[in-house]
């Protein structure tokens, strides 16, 4: 007998959400969705959630189980039982609940819309198919698996504090077009995506990768967009300058120069940015935490330089 502790919400009954517990024997081989259906159909018909395909392809049934987003149809309920006998069910994070586990996806879809989620072809349509090599297909294969379930969006650590962030789903979807060999707007796309709220606001926490029920791996896709943005020389922003400074530092000494990195990231002529760095810089100077001005290289740094040069040639 397992206890399902469910966060209910019914605006027609009371303004605040509340927890309710249901007891259910988990049938053998039952998924979490199977159990949710059992609760609805035999214990409380008002228990509300989204579902459709039950085979992990439509993306309807994403919920938070034990604090983390997943597809209810894709997980064995018995694997989720914690603390002896309880499964905690809550609606997806970073989205407003409408009723019980049903949340408002509008902000999610608005952000998808913002990245222009459709092919903007390079060339006029030929008579037959545009050619695309298997290797080019592979570049966009992973991001194509995204089913827009919202699990990544739910658990994103940045979205928790900043709802202007486009979020992992929109940015991963953007990669699908940025790296599609048939798309002709690469530069325009990465320029937009490099603006505040875009790729450089990602904090690398990999919650999106962890929660994604498909091989989409949003964080890895975001990094790919960053690489393209740098290749396209869209560098007038802190994130890009940071990556460039970091690279320069390793290339010349094999390790990060923590003195030049912050300065080059905000930009030598960015007076405000430099001014903002002053308090923490002075603080650290006072405590003796500033690294020596004469930046030492690692042993055998020439090997590192050589690797950079050889890679450049390829």
């Amino acid at each position: 007998m397992a206890t399902f502790r469910i966060k209910r919400y019914n605006p027609e009954k009371q303004p605040e959400p509340y927890y309710e517990e249901f007891q259910l024997d988990i049938p053998q081989g039952a998924t979490l969705l199977d159990c949710m259906n059992q609760i609805k159909w035999t214990l409380d018909g008002s228990f509300t959630y989204r579902m459709s395909c039950r085979s992990a392809i439509c993306g309807s049934c994403a919920v938070k189980a034990n604090g983390h987003a997943l597809l209810a149809c894709q997980r064995q309920a018995s694997h989720l039982v914690k603390n002896g006998d309880t499964i905690v069910l809550e609606p997806l994070g970073n989205m407003k609940p409408i009723k019980d586990l049903v949340v408002d996806f509008k902000p999610f879809w608005d952000k998808i819309d913002k990245i222009k989620p459709y092919l903007q072809p390079k060339t006029r349509a030929p008579e037959k198919e545009r050619l695309q090599s298997p290797e080019q297909f592979k570049r966009i294969d992973d991001s194509s698996t995204c089913i827009m379930c919202g699990s990544c969006y739910s658990d994103c650590n940045v979205l928790e504090v900043n709802d202007k962030f486009l979020g992992p789903a929109a940015l991963a979807k953007a990669q699908r077009f940025v790296e599609d060999s048939r798309d002709g707007k690469t530069h325009e796309r990465v320029k937009e995506l490099s603006k505040p709220g875009g790729i450089w606001d990602c904090t690398h926490c990999a919650e999106c990768v962890e929660r994604c029920p498909k091989p989409a791996r949003p964080f890895d896709r975001i990094k790919e967009v960053m690489t393209v943005a740098l290749e396209e020389r869209v560098t007038n922003n802190t994130g890009a300058r940071h990556a460039i400074s970091f690279t320069k530092s390793i290339k010349s000494s094999g390790r990060v120069n923590e003195n030049t990195l912050p300065v080059e990231s905000v930009g030598y002529f960015n007076v405000k940015g430099l001014f903002d760095l002053l308090p923490v810089g002075l603080r650290m100077l006072f405590k003796g935490k500033i690294p020596p001005i004469l930046h030492k290289s690692i042993d055998d740094v020439d090997d590192v330089k050589r690797i950079f040069m050889e890679a450049d040639k390829e």
Binding site: H242, F246, R255, I298, D299, D300, A311
Partner: peptide
């Protein structure tokens, strides 16, 4: 490991994924 290079911190790979991996393989 005095001759080991920076791991890249996930930042080097934004600019050059190949070198970042190569330095770690080294």
């Amino acid at each position: 490991m005095k001759s080991a290079a920076c791991c890249g911190a996930g930042v080097l790979s934004e600019k050059t994924p190949l070198v970042a991996d190569a330095l770690n393989a080294r």
